[in-house]
């Protein structure tokens, strides 16, 4: 994952932190998948599953932060190592938020099922956006493991696809609510689900930005795509 250090213990510390982050990433990925599956199949057990995993994610977040503090205090890293550790800390926060979004989706799914009118809602239309979100998070984590800059830039380019899907879906929900006011409560639930999916895409984008930060040393948050592309060339 990073170049060799004089102290091999330092290397293994860094690797251990990254591995823990990837483990957390794996948990989050399945959490999103299950949340989306719960929505597609109206499955309450799956939704409950998503909500329960949250505890393990939180525990991992605390563990990673503690490990980071220890490494920084003991090794006083500089340059790329410092950037890696800082980025891991930020990515952990982002992943934890993704987990929260998955949990939100699961809660909304349960509420939609409880309303009992679920089969009338355009749930299939969320398929494209949710597939995109799952794919983006997956690719962001892969790009982190490989420190793959081109892959990270691709993720930044694709985030607006989800945004476009979200806008289209919102328009559709409005037509549903106008046609039949009884669908309003379900529509609102679905709107929150769509928003959560859109937020997951944003978090994937943040992770991609931190990957560029680790490798290139430039903070590319809030900068334009063309600027990022010139940096990473």
């Amino acid at each position: 994952m990073s170049e060799k250090h004089l102290s091999s213990q330092f290397d293994s510390d860094l690797n251990a932190v990254s591995s823990q982050l990837m483990e957390m990433g794996g948990l989050i990925e399945t959490q999103i998948q299950h949340a989306i599956q719960a929505l597609a199949q109206f499955s309450i057990p799956l939704a409950d599953d998503v909500i329960h995993v949250e505890d393990r994610v939180d525990a991992l977040e605390v563990d990673i932060d503690r490990a980071l503090t220890t490494v920084i205090a003991r090794r006083q890293p500089t340059a790329r190592d410092l950037r890696l550790l800082l980025a891991v800390s930020k990515i952990t926060t982002n992943l934890e938020r993704v987990g929260d979004e998955a949990q939100k989706i699961a809660r909304r799914v349960k509420s939609i099922i409880a309303n009992g009118e679920s089969h009338k809602m355009p749930i299939g239309d969320l398929r494209v956006a949710s597939d995109l979100a799952i794919d983006l998070i997956h690719r962001a984590l892969d790009a982190f493991a490989r420190l793959d800059i081109p892959a990270a830039v691709d993720i930044l380019k694709e985030d607006n696809l989800i945004d476009r899907e979200f806008k289209g879906f919102t328009r559709k929900l409005i037509t549903y609510m106008m046609e039949d006011p009884r669908t309003i409560s379900d529509s609102l639930d679905l709107l929150f689900v769509a928003k959560a999916i859109e937020r997951i895409g944003d978090h994937a984008k943040n992770i991609a930005e931190f990957i560029i930060y680790i490798v290139k040393g430039t903070d590319v948050r809030h900068s334009s795509l063309t600027h990022i592309e010139t940096i990473t060339q």
């Binding site: 591995s19 990837m22 483990e23 990433g25 399945t30 892969d142 493991a145 490989r146």
Partner: peptide, 23 residues
């Protein structure tokens, strides 16, 4: 697994295969 036979050599397997059951 979506691996790259050349680039992913020497990569820890759980970094790329992150399924919790496998980990």
């Amino acid at each position: 697994f979506g691996l790259d036979a050349r680039r992913d050599l020497a990569q820890r397997v759980t970094n790329l295969l992150r399924d919790p059951a496998l980990v």
